[in-house]
Design a protein around this nucleic acid. Structure first.
Length: 583
RNA sequence: GCGCCCGUAGCUCAGUUGGAUAGAGCGCCGGGCUUCGAACCCGUAGGUCGCAGGUUCGAGUCCUGCCGGGCGCACCA
């Protein structure tokens, strides 16, 4: 972490002043810029920003209160710092508000959409694999969480200065695919998604569910599915053709779901392609002695000295297992792209699998194996428990989006906002999908989510629509006259707690991007945006902007609105939620 | 049984990487639109941070042990 990362941070001069005071007071002490962390004191009466001296006390082996006192004498008021005072071990700063406000607003208005960009990544390549659907069923709420996290993380890392590559890995082969194929062969009667007027992934998914129902009573069906899989592996023409036809139906369905969610990929990997490379690599590793053939004939690797178990890498009949394909895919990723790090966004239930995978790759001699990271997010549960595709017990992604679209539409019409026709549909879509995304993103990715359809997604409080509403509200003020202000602002007139609080929060945006990107915690951005929106709404409620009674004050407040608009817009874009001008 | 994750207000969640008096939203009760968007704002009530120890100036946060919930531990992907 080098200083250049923070170049864009408006609080830079405060941090620099503290560092210089430390260097003057304690020469030779190795204290670094990035160790300086600013707090916000519990009460504004105590100061605008604070620095605690406990860390220093540890290094110097002295009383933190004494250090704080000592430092306070070394820091003189600057154009920026009004007053320094101590409160025990805390060194508190009062800023010259008009300078602070004018600095931060000017900074944001100058930076525009690049405000918040930091240099954490320094242009380094990073890959994010997300979504990874199976081609035997439509996507459900769990996939939506995955897609939403994957997109947001990609955007945030991009903002943090990484070169991000988004990829998908489609699980298009295996016994589960054979099951829907068998069901279609037996009961499909030549129907197609077109003939039934159904989305392709739903059409295929119905046969998968049908198979599971029938297979309960007729075990022969499972055998048929297994035989079909072997035929597929042997390249049987009819089987491969049917496989291709049904997968294409599914892809057409997925395209529609991805379009609505806004999923974009630089490349899509198919396991039907990558498993072959995986096999080659395992055979090579066998020759090199990294793994061995056990008494049954399976190729096995022994990971017990790494605290793991033995793991089969290839079946005795030469067919691949799950990990074989992932070995191939991961090697292919590092061959295809110039990346330093590879992130796998996959549900946390697969934690062990990835631990094994990364260890195997490490043993095989790939130095980049230590740069693979599994971002395992928590499960999504329904009130009745875990979602189960094979029983059809899921919250379907497409239905959910339709439902929220409709709810949003009702809300708009209730407010009678002169929004009609195509525009109404477009805005309802943005709000509905924004609500879903925000609902999933505001929770820490590691935590499980319990989804209650009746109460989970609302349009009030800590929600996507609340943030979007604030954005639309500011946009409206701009339309109503904000954009036509020519007067130059006088920031010394902006002295209220609401104006100061909002400005302080806007100044935190680059810090939030940093924290979110370095910990892969997308919920930080979501919660920060809520705080910004809340601070804006409070400010808006308490103070008049266009009718402030003083043109220079109006100009200042309009600029504060513009700066807030930029932060909200950039923040929403990071989350993959569309900022709206009207709603 | 073994391994990993999670326990914070009635419910859903934050908690700036160990810092000042633990915060929001929803819900309940009450208040605020002839004035820039009320999908908004304000107030009241609500807590043994699962329990018990430990580490230190300081623990919701770190270590240990319990309790409760989840997820893994296949030639399924």
């Amino acid at each position: 972490m080098k200083k250049e990362i923070w170049k864009d941070n408006p609080l830079d001069s405060l941090k620099t002043a503290i560092l210089e005071a430390i260097k003057t007071a304690y020469p030779g002490l190795g204290y670094e810029y990035e160790e300086i962390n600013l707090d916000i004191p519990p009460d504004p009466k105590m100061g605008d920003f604070g620095f605690s001296c406990f860390e220093l006390a540890k290094k110097i082996r002295d009383n933190p209160a004494k250090i704080s006192n000592n430092l306070s004498e070394k820091i003189k008021p600057t154009k920026f710092i009004d007053k320094v005072c101590t409160s025990g071990p805390f060194l508190n700063f009062f800023l010259k508000n008009e300078i602070f406000i004018s600095d931060i607003i000017n900074h944001i208005l100058f930076q525009k959409e690049s405000y918040g960009r930091i240099n954490l990544g320094n242009g380094k390549g990073i890959m994010i694999e997300y979504s990874a659907p199976n081609t035997n069923k439509p996507q459900h709420l769990g996939h939506v969480r995955n897609n939403t996290i994957g997109m947001a993380l990609s955007n945030i890392l991009e903002k943090a200065g990484f070169r991000v590559y988004r990829v998908n890995l489609v699980n298009d082969r295996g016994i589960h695919i054979s099951k829907s194929m068998i069901a279609y062969k037996l009961w499909g009667n030549g129907k197609t998604p077109e003939s039934e007027g159904k989305k392709g992934d739903h059409f295929v998914g119905d046969y998968y569910v049908l198979f599971e129902q029938k297979a309960k009573k007729d075990p022969v069906l499972l055998k048929e599915a297994q035989e079909l899989l072997i035929k597929w592996e042997n390249g049987d023409k009819d089987v491969v053709n049917l496989w291709r036809k049904m997968n294409n139906w599914v892809y057409e369905g997925f395209d529609e779901t991805y379009r609505r969610l806004g999923c974009k990929f630089d490349k899509i990997y198919y396991e039907s392609d990558t498993y072959k490379l995986g096999k080659d690599i395992v055979f090579k590793a066998l020759k090199e002695g990294h793994c061995y053939k056990d008494s049954k004939g399976d190729i096995v690797i022994d990971l017990r000295d790494r605290g793991l178990e033995k793991k089969v890498l290839l079946r005795k009949d030469g067919t691949s297992v799950y990990i074989t394909q992932d070995i191939g895919t991961t090697v292919m990723k590092f061959n295809d792209f110039n990346i330093e790090r590879s992130i796998f966004v996959v549900a946390s239930e697969q934690k062990y699998h990835f631990k094994v995978l990364f260890n195997v790759l490490d043993i095989f001699g790939y130095e980049w194996a230590k740069n693979c990271f599994h971002l395992g997010y928590g499960m999504v549960y329904l009130p009745e428990g875990k979602m189960k595709s094979r029983e059809g017990k899921v919250v379907d992604a497409d239905n959910l989006m339709d439902e929220l679209h409709q709810l949003a539409k009702n809300e708009i019409m209730k407010r009678n906002r002169n929004i009609h026709g195509e525009e109404l549909e477009k805005i309802a879509e943005s709000i509905g999908i924004g609500a879903i995304k925000y609902f999933l993103l505001k929770v820490h990715p590691l935590k499980d989510i319990f989804f209650n359809p009746e109460e989970s997604i609302s349009f009030e409080g800590t929600t996507g629509p609340y943030v979007q509403y604030t954005h639309a509200r500011i946009s409206s003020v701009m339309r109503m006259g904000g954009n036509k202000i020519n007067e130059s602002p006088d920031y010394s007139l902006m002295t209220t707690p609401e104006e100061i609080q909002l400005s302080k929060l806007l100044a935190k945006f680059p810090d939030i991007v940093f924290e979110s990107a370095s910990s892969y915690n997308i919920s930080r951005v979501a919660n920060y945006l809520f705080n910004v929106a809340k601070a804006f709404n409070k400010f808006y409620h308490d103070h008049s902007i266009l009718n402030a009674g003083n043109k220079k004050l109006t100009a200042g407040r309009v600029n504060l609105c513009k700066a807030s608009l930029i932060v909200l817009k950039e923040g929403l874009k990071l989350l993959g939620i569309e900022p709206l001008e009207k709603m």
